[in-house]
Simulated scan of single mutants.
Amino acid sequence: MAQTILAVDDEKDIAEMLKYYFTKQGYRVITAQNGKDALKFAEKKPDLILLDINLPDLDGLSICEKIRDFVSCPIIFLTARIEDGDKIRGFAAGGDDYVIKPFSMDELGARVAAHLRRELRRSGGSEVRFDENLVIDYSARRIFYQGKELLFAKKEFDIIEYLSQHPGQVFDKETIYERVWSYDSEGESSVITEHIRRIRAKFSAAGAGSYIETVWGCGYQWAR
């Protein structure tokens, strides 16, 4: 099931841009343009909230304080304010991060993914069993199939980590490349094809099925 993001911004263009971008990344996105709707939609327990500080009815800090009574997910403030005092008040209200407007959608996307990964590790522990055969220990960066350790290169593990923490979501090669190699790395997203071929070969050699599926014309997804 896709993770849910609640995006709150009183500017319609920004709200629509956030919905378009994160929907394309495989998330389910709910938008709100005022504090009243933000409080209502927060009751649906999203996985992460993007919260504009300057809203017409309730400011983002007040909303954050109110929803922290029943919401524990990461909250990222979207704001034009940059003073240290504002940041301190935001963190004190229960916020987890700040992104300054105008912002890069790719940078915001990277921060969202990082917060969701940390939340997944925190809620499920560092070791995750995907079925009766496969166990991934994210903290130790080790993978076991039927009790036997499988050895993967660093980038191979990074790809497995990223896809397995977003099961069922489809990512194109460019997105995987940006997340694993970072935005300013030199190289081609086509290297993803070769790395996934190697990953599949190692799973196959161990007698495992293909945990990474190709969605033709779209990209790859973690199948289980």
Score class of each variant (00 low, 15 high):
A2K: 15
Q3K: 15
T4R: 06
L6F: 13
A7L: 12
D9N: 15
D9T: 08
E16N: 06
L18C: 04
Y20S: 12
Y20E: 13
Y20T: 10
Q25T: 04
R28M: 14
N34W: 06
F41P: 03
A42F: 06
E43F: 04
K45S: 10
P46C: 10
I49K: 01
L50C: 11
I53M: 05
I53D: 01
G60E: 03
G60W: 01
L61R: 07
L61Q: 05
S62D: 12
E65T: 11
I67E: 04
I67P: 01
R68W: 03
R68H: 04
F70A: 10
V71F: 10
P74Y: 04
P74A: 12
I75A: 03
I75W: 02
T79I: 12
A80H: 12
A80K: 12
R81C: 11
G90K: 02
I100F: 02
K101P: 05
M105F: 09
D106P: 00
E107A: 03
L108P: 02
A110K: 10
R111L: 14
H115G: 11
R118D: 10
E119M: 05
L120V: 06
G125K: 00
E127R: 11
F130D: 06
V135W: 02
I136E: 00
Y138K: 05
Y138Q: 05
S139G: 15
S139C: 14
S139L: 15
A140H: 06
R141T: 03
R141W: 02
I143D: 01
F144R: 05
G147P: 07
L150T: 04
L151I: 08
A153V: 05
K154M: 08
E156W: 03
F157L: 10
I159E: 00
I159Y: 00
E161Q: 12
S164M: 09
G168W: 14
Q169Y: 01
Q169A: 14
Q169C: 14
F171R: 13
E174F: 13
E174V: 14
V180K: 00
S182V: 08
D184M: 10
S185N: 13
S185T: 09
E186P: 02
E186L: 13
G187N: 10
S189L: 05
S190H: 07
V191F: 06
E194H: 15
E194Q: 15
H195R: 12
I199F: 09
I199N: 01
A205F: 08
G209I: 04
S210I: 02
Y211E: 06
T214H: 13
T214D: 07
G217H: 13
G217T: 13
C218M: 14
Y220R: 03
W222K: 04
